[in-house]
Design a protein around this nucleic acid. Structure first.
Lengths: 229, 229
DNA sequence: CCAAAAGTGTTACAAGTACACCCATGA
DNA sequence: TCATGGGTGTACTTGTAACACTTTTGG
């Protein structure tokens, strides 16, 4: 079969679940659609894939376009390919998810959207979404909840310098549990992934908290060794 | 943007890494191409996605077409979207992987292929592949190696009745380790996922081995609880 | 009675969990 | 001096790993 003979009518879109933590809440970047279909519903940042870009490049471009961030953690999530996802015609969406440090953020409003903003999980429960974007978000949340357990991706949500309480808060927020402070610190020390700095965060009239930084900021690392079952 | 105005020239393909275990070796189903491009190289079963089928349906169809199996474990793996994957034009491939019980197998030879067959990991190392199919296989192997640790997917590689030695062999083959027999049996018993049968497998002049079956044959189950880090 | 794989428990070690008090600061 | 979050160690429980012998069968 020659490629030019293929008469396949599928549009390839790409959507990104961009996550951050602000005020101890996990938040998703969403836009409110101003055009049909699904006008006035919320949707993920995304677009049609430019055929001259690889999927990873296309994802980077969208992230840059909507957040002005170009070095975040960005990973493919899943490809959504049900029929009738999009009323306009057959469309599959390659979904990605990104984790960004809120302090690095610089939102770029787009003409296409009248609202672009961060919404917490409790906001999301009440909202109506375009396409299957609620499902995409749910799968992204499941993924990060799972992945934070055995990798160091929590890094991506923090600035260069952070306190151990801040790091712990990231875990608690994502896993929706509380963690014992002493056990947490013991484990982090064992993992040998952070270095203490000689700087302290002053917070009102409390004892200042020591700042730490990650040894390897960018690289995703598997922390847990495999056991056989 | 109206869908009909989109002039995007990307072909959506779908490839499946079909895995089984035979003679204590993990094997992949491959075909040798008889047409250009990549003539005489090995490739995964797959094809162009029919726009009238969802991705999951398309994957099922291909699995059925090439193995005549319709109830196997089949899960989306990853979507490969680099430029120049296919010399003929821009193509992305939504890859799936499947685990099947070799004893259920009934290969359907296709005109398109002059050889369709099972190849072990040691075979694969020496072979030349079409497209990026070597990369796809590697990612499927990584996935199953990881997933066998915390789910019951090993089920899918065994027939209804099996002995504990056979189950253990599946784990040993996939994880490429040896496991202590007593510890393995203890763990399997704790997981409460198998039931003993009053049937025994006779094997020459050795003591017969008791047959077991899985409690829930079809459902994928998460076996390991999440810890916080 | 021999060869071959099936089957079975206990001990030692590592990892995870639970838990309570002192410290440093600014108001 | 007091209120607040930062910072620390130890005992207990659970899970994992190491290890050797008896059983059943057919030839």
């Amino acid at each position: 079969m020659n490629h030019s003979e293929i008469n396949q009518n599928i549009v390839v879109a790409l959507d990104i679940v961009i996550l951050t933590i602000k005020d101890n809440l996990l938040k998703v970047l969403l836009t409110k659609r101003t055009i049909e279909p699904y006008i006035h519903r919320y949707s993920l940042p995304g677009g049609i894939v430019d055929e001259k870009l690889s999927l990873d490049e296309a994802a980077k471009n969208i992230l840059k376009r909507d957040t002005n961030i170009s070095d975040a953690f960005l990973e493919q999530l899943y490809t959504f390919g049900d029929l009738n996802r999009d009323k306009r015609g057959r469309t599959i969406s390659v979904a990605y998810y990104a984790l960004i440090d809120y302090s690095k953020l610089n939102l770029i409003p787009s003409k296409k959207y009248d609202e672009i903003g961060w919404y917490s999980l409790s906001d999301i429960k009440k909202m109506k979404f375009a396409f299957d974007h609620d499902k995409i978000i749910q799968i992204a949340l499941d993924r990060i909840k799972n992945k934070i357990e055995y990798t160091n991706i929590a890094f991506q949500l923090l600035p260069e310098k952070f306190t151990l309480a801040e790091l712990q808060q990231i875990y608690e927020t994502i896993l929706e549990t509380s963690i014992d402070k002493r056990n947490f610190r013991k484990k982090i020390a064992e993992l040998d992934m952070v270095v203490e700095l000689n700087e302290y965060k002053k917070m009102g009239r409390m004892r200042p908290a020591q700042y730490y930084k990650f040894k390897e900021r960018t690289k995703e690392t598997i922390l847990k060794a495999n056991k056989w079952v």
